[in-house]
Every structure is written in C-alpha cells, then in structure tokens.
C-alpha cells in the first residue's frame, strides 16, 4: 500500500485535505477496518469502491465521526483534516460535522418544508445574521444543489413531497448550506432511477470546484464517471488507491483486478 502512495503522489496536483494513518475500526468484537492509510486531496472527487461489507462506508463514517453515534463502534488510529487530528479530545464532533458534510444512501429530507430543510444547518450553526441572510444562504445552497429552479416556487412545501432524485439533491443542498469543506456521500444514487442518478452525478462533478468530495459507490461505472481518485476496499483492508484511470485500466493488485472484472463482489 505504501507503493500506492508513492505512485499516486506523482500525479497529485491538489494539496491533501484528509490524511488517515493506521485506522482501525471495531464493532464490538469484530474488526471492521484494518490498517487504513490514505491521503484524500482537496477539490477532488475520491471514490471508495469494493464489495458489500468491505468497510468502505464504515471508513467514510469515520471521517466525520458519525460512528460516535453507534455505541458498539470503536475507532483507533489517526485521521487529520488540514493537519488537525479529528479524534483529538478537544474536537467537538458537532463542529467537525459542520465542516465535513454528509449525504446518505437513502434520501432523508426532514418532515419539514424545503426551506426549513436547507435552513436547518445554517440555523443550528448560527450562520445567518438575519432572515434576508438566511434566504440568501438557502437560495445559494439550492442553486448549488441544482434544484433551485424546480423548487423556487414552492419553498414552503414539505420536502418529503419531492421525487426521489429531487429529495437527494435537496439533501445535497442541505449539506452544502453549512458551507462544509468536505462532502461525504454514502452511495448517494443507490435509491435513485437512472435519470435522477445522472443529475446527481453531474452535480457531484460541479461540487468538485469547491469541495473535497468522497463518494462511496457500489457501481464501478459511477466511480469511473465521477471520480479522479479511486480506493478499493476489500474485507476491511484498503487494497489499492490511485488515479481512477489507473485503477480501472492497470490495477496493481490481483484482488482489484478480480473485482473490476466482475469475478468477486
């Protein structure tokens, strides 16, 4: 794996946003993630691929400490964002999660209006000075979520009334509204139809301008389409990490090759 890091370092032009070293995750007695070392670049889309249960989502949830909400989960090792250890005692997960937004597998709009869904983050973090400010933030977020035109006339309709693809873009807009620096996406398209998937993928590509995007996907095609970097996980190990083109055309590890040619997974 060390080799990967060297090979990848030649092509990287973006500075590193997230650096993980020797990360282990345990769920109760089971060892879900083993010895993961990875550097995730800023303003890049990084895809995590691998068969089900390989630990890619678990590792993703370490990056914004969502695993804290599961009692049985225990994380060791070192994950740094901008050089700061996010598992340091002084770090408040609440502040961390404002900086590292997350979009989930199933669209999960709150049972509130579209406006309130997006305004939720800015409100709790106190990002708006007044109502006009908040309106601006909401509009900006909805525009970045590429859903503004569809909902601008019904901002006070319930978010749960939107279609699946719209809901997921609303959730992305909601995540963007807190002005995060990293966006984590956990299989954001798995509950969507192909058209909605295309819209969301297009959106992810645009989001790269401003954020470091990490996306977990079970679809290799999707990883190939949207990401610049790809990491392959297998049985809790990070098997291979590199430029997406390299992973898909010249995999170094036999397991990666088996997976992308469809023999395991």
């Amino acid at each position: 794996m060390k080799d990967n890091r060297y090979s990848e370092s030649d092509v990287t032009i973006q500075p590193v946003k997230i650096a993980a070293r020797n990360v282990q995750v345990y769920y109760g007695d089971s060892h879900a993630i083993r010895d993961v070392d990875i550097d995730i670049a800023d303003k890049t889309v990084t895809a995590f691929i691998g068969p089900s249960g390989c630990g890619k989502s678990t590792f993703l949830r370490c990056i914004n400490r969502m695993n804290d909400t599961i009692d049985a989960a225990r994380v060791t090792g070192d994950i740094r964002i901008d050089g700061e250890d996010i598992y340091d005692k002084r770090v408040d997960p609440v502040q961390l999660r404002a900086k590292v937004g997350m979009v989930f597998q199933k669209p999960n709009p709150f049972p509130k209006s579209i406006y309130d869904n997006v305004a939720y983050g800015p409100r709790i973090h106190g990002l708006a000075r007044n109502k006009a400010d908040l309106d601006d933030i909401v509009e900006q977020a909805l525009r970045r979520g590429a859903i503004w035109n569809e909902v601008k006339d019904r901002l006070h309709a319930p978010g749960t009334g939107l279609s699946g693809g719209q809901q997921q873009r609303l959730c992305i807009a909601r995540a963007v509204a807190t002005e995060p620096e990293v966006l984590l996406m956990d299989e954001p398209c798995s509950a969507l139809d192909p058209i909605a998937t295309a819209q969301v993928e297009e959106l992810i590509d645009e989001l790269r301008q401003n954020y470091s995007v990490v996306i977990v996907t079970h679809s290799m095609q999707q990883a190939a389409r949207v990401s610049q970097k790809t990491a392959f996980f297998h049985l809790g190990n990070l098997v291979e990490f590199g430029d997406t083109d390299d992973i898909f055309t010249r995999p170094q590890d036999p397991r990666t090759e088996s997976y992308i040619t469809g023999r395991i997974g």
Binding site: A98, Y120, I124, L184
Partner: peptide
C-alpha cells in the same frame, strides 16, 4: 422515527438535543 432522519441531522453537525427537538419530536 427512522434512524436515517437522525443521521441526516447529525451529519449536518446538530447536537443530539437539537436533533431530538427539531427533527425527532416534530416527526
């Protein structure tokens, strides 16, 4: 109340009480 709503709220950096008061209870 589905766990996904709580996750959504935690993912945005809400504290547990904010999640309960503003997401779980309204739902």
């Amino acid at each position: 109340v589905p766990q996904s709503l709580r996750d959504g709220s935690f993912g945005l950096g809400a504290t547990q009480s904010e999640t309960i008061r503003q997401v779980v209870i309204p739902a």
